[in-house]
């Protein structure tokens, strides 16, 4: 289990991480969400001991995270990059050596992972000769090859096509079954919604929401409906029944006041716009995200 207690990190006057406390249990994916500049990357760097916190502690299985635990941690940073002029196998070997693996382990594991990610034929190619997606796969391998206890993925799916996204998703779920502690930091709410069991939403270094996804949805609660439509729906702005709404291409998600019955609302709008579909829903993570951040501001 990873425990983060009262973590504080300041840069000059700015509090990048402001008293964060959370824990991550093995076997569940922990989603760390937040808008740009919320302090996600700083939190991750502090967990990894890349930067020292001003206060607080980080424990992995009751032991503070220091250089002794480096070999039990795998990290995929958001911004990707590898030694471009070097050979794929050489880069993997170097980074795996740094994680304390020996040469024979590295050989078998490299072959295994290249095969698993469907790129065994690139082993002896230079990194710069690979497509961006394939370079990302190599980087993914360097994060997981040493079979670490704790895995931190920062936007693991960005830059992948849907097929490869699925491939990476399956690999991550595999790792989960092996009892790894996994932190997933992302902006993609639909991915987070599908993969994460636990959520931590942060903004300006502070916790905004935390808990299991179902708890959060229940707590956020309220009266949510979604409808697909054709036409113009600007009138939602003027309706007293509406607390807030989000518009996706030809769908709208609306948060109604608690005493408004959905069928009454439907009756009111049906003359103004063509409704193609109408449903009562739990709020999506996306809506929760936007509302929580907006309310805070």
């Amino acid at each position: 289990m990873l425990e983060v207690k009262n973590l504080i990190k300041t840069f000059g006057q700015v509090k990048a991480v402001d008293n964060l406390t959370f824990s991550v249990k093995p076997g569940k994916i922990f989603g760390m969400l937040g808008p740009n500049g919320a302090g996600k990357t700083t939190t991750i760097r502090t967990i990894l001991n890349i930067i020292k916190p001003n206060a607080g502690e980080v424990l992995l299985n009751q032991k503070p995270v220091t250089q002794d635990l480096f070999n039990s941690i795998g990290y995929l940073p958001e911004e990707r990059g590898l030694y471009k002029k070097s050979k794929v196998a050489d880069v993997i070997t170097y980074l795996a050596h740094l994680k304390g693996m020996n040469s024979s382990q590295i050989k078998t594991e490299t072959d295994k992972w290249l095969k698993k990610l469907e790129i065994p034929h690139y082993k002896d190619r230079k990194v710069e000769e690979l497509s961006k997606g394939n370079q990302q796969k190599i980087q993914f391998i360097t994060a997981v090859i040493h079979n670490p206890e704790l895995l931190i993925f920062d936007e693991p799916f960005s830059g992948f096509d849907p097929i490869n996204q699925q491939l990476i998703k399956d690999v991550i779920l595999d790792l989960l079954d092996n009892g790894k502690i996994i932190i997933l930091s992302t902006h993609q709410m639909d991915t987070a919604e599908k993969l994460c069991n636990e959520i931590l939403l942060i903004n300006e270094g502070k916790e905004v929401l935390s808990g299991s996804l179902s708890d959060i949805k229940q707590k956020f609660g309220g009266n949510h409906i979604k409808f697909a439509y054709e036409g113009e729906i600007k009138f939602l702005n003027e309706m007293d029944e509406v607390l807030s709404f989000e518009i996706y291409s030809n769908e709208a998600e609306v948060h109604l006041k608690n005493d408004v019955k959905p069928e009454i609302f439907l009756r009111k709008i049906i003359d103004k716009v063509t409704i193609k579909q109408f449903s009562i829903i739990e709020p999506t993570l996306n809506k929760i995200f936007i509302d929580s951040i907006k309310n805070k501001n």
Binding site: F70, I73, Y75, P77, G81, L82, K84, L98, K99
Partner: peptide, 17 residues
């Protein structure tokens, strides 16, 4: 500079001091 600009440095110093 290469290690810095492609953030390899983060991987390196989460592997060694």
């Amino acid at each position: 500079l290469e290690e810095k600009s492609n953030r390899l440095i983060e991987i390196l110093i989460s592997s060694c001091t």
